[in-house]
């Protein structure tokens, strides 16, 4: 139970940390999808926005469940001590890469784009003739969740390291929820966030904060990093189902 809470907290924190990135990259998509549904009143607008974001988070959860299930046997192969070290190191390296690429210091992870972009295009073509505003909003959200995005790749990597399908799905569900505040704000037209995301100094600051957090997970002395490193050393050791 405690490890699930930590997994949730880790995914949610990653989602929240992505706020500026999401607002800059996906703010226009969020607003565009809402206008596509042409809501007739505020209540319908809220319903369509909820369906769109639900679709997006469902895509994340499905992808997280898949990579979590694939990651479990890979991690189960390793010796317990090595598995823990691998997860800690890979998590730190991934978080640093996400942070530094958000800050514009390192190139974004683009290899995944080649896999995700054709899937998103195909799904968009399938969804285009759907009848009804609700179905269109949901399909739009599902497609949106498969759009190439560096932050999603980072979260998926964390989901893979969770070592189980449930853990992977949980990380991505929490990540999706963490991205909600920023994206909802841009959906309803708060342009300040989008403008903030375009300011280099802010992007660099937010990215460096994520990178430093990643670095601290391997630099702080053992036993002192539970506060910032979720899942913690002990939680991770008990969470991985070695050989199962």
């Amino acid at each position: 139970m405690q490890s699930l809470a930590l997994t949730l907290a880790g995914g949610f924190a990653l989602g929240l940390a992505s706020t500026l990135h999401c607002a800059g990259m996906c703010g226009s998509i969020a607003a565009g999808l809402l206008h596509l549904g042409a809501p007739r009143n505020a209540a319908e607008g809220i319903r369509l926005a909820a369906l769109t974001h639900a679709g997006r988070i469902v895509s994340y959860v499905l992808a997280g469940t898949l990579v979590g299930a694939l990651g479990a046997p890979a991690i189960g192969w390793l010796d317990r001590e090595i598995a823990f070290r691998f997860i800690q190191w890979a998590g730190a390296a991934a978080l640093m890469w996400i942070g530094l690429s958000t800050a514009g210091l390192l190139p974004p992870i683009s290899a995944m784009d080649r896999v995700m972009a054709p899937m998103a295009n195909r799904l968009a073509r399938l969804a285009s003739p759907l009848p009804g505003r609700g179905a269109t909003a949901l399909a739009g959200g599902l497609t949106w969740g498969l759009m190439p995005c560096a932050m999603v790749y980072g979260a998926l990597f964390t989901a893979m390291l969770s070592g189980s399908a449930l853990g992977g799905g949980t990380v991505m569900a929490a990540f999706g929820l963490g991205t909600l505040p920023g994206l909802l704000a841009t959906t309803v037209g708060i342009r300040t966030l989008v403008a903030a995301a375009r300011r280099r100094a802010l992007r660099v600051t937010a990215g460096l904060a994520i990178a430093i957090l990643g670095f601290l997970t391997v630099w702080l002395p053992q036993g002192r990093n539970e506060a910032i490193c979720a899942p913690s050393a002990n939680a991770t050791l008990t969470q991985i189902k070695i050989g199962s």
Binding site: Q88, W89, A92, A93, M96, L100, F215, V218, W219
Partner: peptide
């Protein structure tokens, strides 16, 4: 080397 040192050197 520690992972922290390795990551730093990579950067």
């Amino acid at each position: 080397p520690t992972m922290a040192a390795f990551l730093w050197m990579s950067l």
